[in-house]
Design a binder for these strands. Structure first.
Ligand SMILES: [Mn+2]
Ligand SMILES: [Mn+2]
Length: 301
DNA sequence: GTAAGAC
DNA sequence: GTCTTACAACGCGTA
DNA sequence: TACGCG
């Protein structure tokens, strides 16, 4: 048990020697250290966004649980954002500094899922996401081929997208937009583009919601574009062997199909970020407009 | 991981 | 005191 | 309206 004071905020971290990845020999303390080191690149992507946490108090393979509502024993300085759900008010936690990040990770939540929108513009998301979810036997080549098809579609529509590994098995493409459109509107755009991709690659992709009907293909999950839906954060650890991390890629790395999820881990991500910087920074800076797509749906292929 | 509730 | 339990529950598409 | 899915 160790008391820390981070920028004036008191926080207690516990069980630092507990092993969270036995095969890799990674302790809870090392996970907290990782998040402190990556914080300068990670925090801008979390700031102002309600978070859904997945907590793994007994390591990546142990029993886990989701947490939306911030428990009452959280420190008073931890910011939260109340959002009415069906039956109650959920106080989502916000992480915009190192102290909050350390508190969250100490609670076992090494997997962090931010909303697509920020609290000031809750109904207007900051990006469209293309969530590529491969079924069991989809090859990495097919995943990258599909991602490149998404990229071509985006280019045709005058949009820039940025790919990242989920860190698990799939890949996601973020399209940063001006926060001026509704979730319904961006979902419509995502749907159209996924349809085009599916039409171009019908043998390897599917938009079937029923797992039984997916035929082992790659699922184009455009439905992730909705309020309250989340994706595991960039630079976040995933509950996988090897301690893989959701890592931004260049389009060249996607095209070459050489960068694989298991290549980017707790052990090497810091070096990559130090060398390449935050490849996902444009996701926070670019504000693309969708007016031309929404006004004339025919302009979509 | 932590606390509240049940024995 | 010690042990057990909770910690999400909504939006959307399809049948 | 219910169910599956994420
Ligand atoms: Mn996914
Ligand atoms: Mn998905």
């Amino acid at each position: 048990m160790t008391q820390l004071s981070i920028a004036g905020k008191e926080i207690t971290v516990t069980n630092l020697e507990k092993v969270w990845w036995p095969d890799e020999g990674i302790t809870k303390g090392e996970v907290i250290n990782y998040y402190v080191e990556i914080a300068p690149w990670l925090l801008p992507h979390l700031a102002g966004r309600p978070l859904v946490l997945t907590r793994y108090p007994n390591g990546w393979a142990g029993k886990s649980f989701y947490q939306k509502h911030t428990p009452g024993h959280a420190p008073a300085w931890l910011k939260t954002f109340p959002l009415a759900s069906d039956k109650r008010i959920i106080n989502y936690c916000l992480v915009d500094d190192v102290a909050a990040l350390v508190w969250v990770v100490n609670s076992g939540a090494f997997e962090i899922h931010p909303f697509l929108s920020r609290i000031g513009t809750l109904e207007q998301p900051d990006f469209i996401v293309f969530d590529l979810d491969p079924m069991e036997k989809v090859t990495w080549e097919h995943i990258c081929e599909t991602a490149m098809a998404v990229a071509q579609g985006l280019e045709l529509w005058g949009l820039k997208g940025f790919p990242k590994l989920s860190g698990s098995t799939g890949l996601q493409i973020f399209v940063p937009i001006r926060p001026r459109y509704t979730y319904s509107q961006i979902r419509e755009v995502a749907y159209s583009l996924c349809q085009a991709v599916n039409a171009a690659l019908p043998q390897i992709t599917t938009m079937e919601r029923s797992i039984a009907k997916r035929e082992g293909k790659l699922y184009l999950d455009y439905l992730q574009n909705a309020l309250g839906k989340t994706l595991a954060t960039v630079y976040g650890l995933r509950p996988r062997p090897g301690a893989t991390i959701s890592t931004p890629l260049t389009w060249e790395e996607v095209a070459s199909m050489r960068a694989r999820p298991q290549d980017f881990t707790l052990f090497n991500i810091q070096k990559r970020v130090s060398e390449k910087g935050d490849l996902f920074r444009p996701v926070l800076q670019l504000k693309q407009d969708l007016d031309h797509l929404l006004l004339s749906p025919d302009s979509r292929k």
